[in-house]
Design a protein around this nucleic acid. Structure first.
Lengths: 227, 227
DNA sequence: AATAACTTGCACAGTGTTGTGCAAGTTATT
DNA sequence: AATAACTTGCACAACACTGTGCAAGTTATT
């Protein structure tokens, strides 16, 4: 039943085209989530008609992008573990930024749009992780206790998205964005800005990974995040 | 030239219907910004056809809602003046919440959607106000200086919108929302959570206005913002 | 009661999209 | 070189919506 018999192996370029379409869709939808399939196909260098050779409908295409993206982010983030809940949160923020930076708009769609319900399951693990870290931080006194866990968790999430949104219109270097994501997260959970800054600087886990080629731009001051 | 002569005064109910349509549009579009005029008309108890008796097209209707809304908010906020820039920011956040609470989604559309360019002028005054407060706060050491004014200003704005968004899905009492808006704003500009809390509690200007009818639900604790 | 002002319902044109069928073409695989 | 796998272009139906014209109705105003 696995090999009906009178057929041949599927062509390899078909798979490539499928990937082209996915890549094109990521690009185009990241610019305008409600773009037409015509636009996507054009970007992929294919015809609109052929889209339907790979995906049953628009919905399915969209869904594939979003779910694989969500899975990618989820696996990257659920590996984050650290005894200190503040560090854990900061690491989550940092990793999220790195993963999602290049597909910001789609990420927002995935989280906000009608597909939110579908990604909720995949992203549930992350959410749980954030929630747990906050509960722990509230318990040990390192995070604010004037807001309920659930609300605070959502505010933390949304704040991460804010950084993404803002950087969409006002670009930010990878490193600056990384730091900003952490700073904002810490701010929301209750740390004052000096506290947050020294906290980050004091933990090697939160440091920006040293360049592979040693100090190639070590003369560049990065104390502050420029506009 | 003001009264051509062979006509009559316009009917009073027409103006009412126009208002009904605007109210309906606010309601419906606030639920789904891309809803059809059919839906709007139905909500107003009128026919789709009659919409065109009052507005040239969809765009014009949308525009009227957004611009009058923006004007309303702008006039409410530009009157905010206070020597202390922190208080000023908190007041802006607080007033914004009160003005916009009931039309959250439309507010987001007005600020984010394609009409953003149109409202930008109206809301420019507020933005300038926020920016000025931040610059002042940075100068006198009451706000963080690790982020540039422009970026910080945008983050403050976006954070206000986050509170609006979150409260759309997870409703919040008027007073709780008010306080949360202030807390988040202060957090973003650098205050630790205890600092922010005592700051708000220490300024009568930032207190929730006393009920007109004395303590009608005074038994309700509102120290914390529930989920 | 007369009449202008307004509303309504219907029909219709136009637009932009999605999704399908099919015949003819191109291309990878065997 | 044969052939299945894939792409393409075109035509077509369907849908949901916007905007307009018009004749017939209803209602406020005078």
């Amino acid at each position: 039943m696995s090999t009906p018999s009178p057929s041949r192996a599927p062509r390899r370029d078909a798979a490539e085209n499928r990937e082209s379409l996915l890549a094109a869709a990521r690009l185009v939808f990241n610019h305008d989530p409600s773009a037409s399939l015509e636009a996507v196909a054009a970007q992929a260098g294919l015809s609109r008609r052929s889209v339907y050779g790979h995906f049953a409908n628009r919905e399915e295409l969209l869904l594939e992008i979003v779910t694989t993206g969500a899975r990618r982010v989820a696996t990257a983030l659920e590996s984050v573990t650290h005894p200190d809940p503040l560090v854990r949160l900061a690491l989550i923020a940092s990793n999220l930024w790195r993963e999602v930076e290049s597909v910001r708009v789609m990420a927002l769609v995935a989280v906000r749009g009608p597909l939110a319900a579908h990604t909720a399951a995949t992203l549930g693990a992350i959410r749980a992780n954030v929630r747990a870290a906050i509960a722990e931080g509230q318990a040990d006194g390192s995070m604010r206790t004037d807001l309920a866990v659930g609300r605070l968790a959502r505010l933390v999430e949304d704040t991460a998205l804010v950084v993404l949104e803002d950087s969409t219109e006002h670009p930010l270097g990878a490193q600056e964005g990384d730091r900003l994501a952490m700073l904002m997260t810490l701010a929301v959970v209750g740390l004052g800005w000096r506290e947050a800054g020294t906290f980050i600087d004091g933990r090697p886990e939160l440091a920006w990974p040293a360049a592979t080629e040693p100090d190639i731009e070590s003369d560049r001051e990065t104390e502050t995040v420029p506009e």
